[in-house]
Computed example of a mutant assay.
Amino acid sequence: MKKYYLLLFCLNCCFSAFSQEVTKTDKTAFQAGEQITYKLKYGFFNAAEATIRVENSPVKFNGNPALHIIADAKTAGTFDVFFKVRNRYESYIDQQTLLPYYYTEDRHESKYRHTDKVTFDHKTNIITADKGKFPFEGNVFDFLSAYYFARNIDVSNLKVGDKLELRYFLEDGIHSLGITFLGREKVKCGLGTFNCLKFNPTIIPGRIFRKNSKLYLWITDDNNRIPVKAHVELIVGSLVMDLSEAKGLKYPLNPIKK
Rank of each mutant, 00 (worst) to 15 (best):
N254M: 11
Y4N: 12
K214A: 02
M241H: 02
F61V: 11
N200D: 11
V81E: 04
D26W: 02
V140K: 08
F44R: 06
G138A: 10
E171R: 12
R86K: 13
T119I: 09
Y251C: 05
Y38K: 07
L170S: 13
K133H: 12
G77V: 00
N64K: 15
A71M: 14
S244W: 05
I126P: 02
I127Y: 06
V85L: 07
Q95R: 12
R113A: 03
D142V: 08
L144F: 12
Q31L: 04
C14M: 12
G183M: 05
S145T: 10
N195I: 00
Y89I: 09
F194Y: 09
L67W: 15
G132C: 03
E34Q: 13
D142P: 09
R107G: 00
M1P: 10
F83A: 04
F30E: 08
S238H: 11
E49L: 01
Q95N: 04
T28S: 11
L217G: 06
A47K: 06
E105F: 13
A129T: 04
F45N: 05
F209D: 07
E21V: 00
D142N: 10
H68W: 12
K3E: 11
R167A: 13
K159F: 01
E49R: 11
Y112E: 13
P255L: 04
F194R: 03
I256S: 10
S16A: 14
L67S: 14
Y102S: 00
L11F: 05
R225N: 14
H175M: 04
Y147I: 02
N87Q: 08
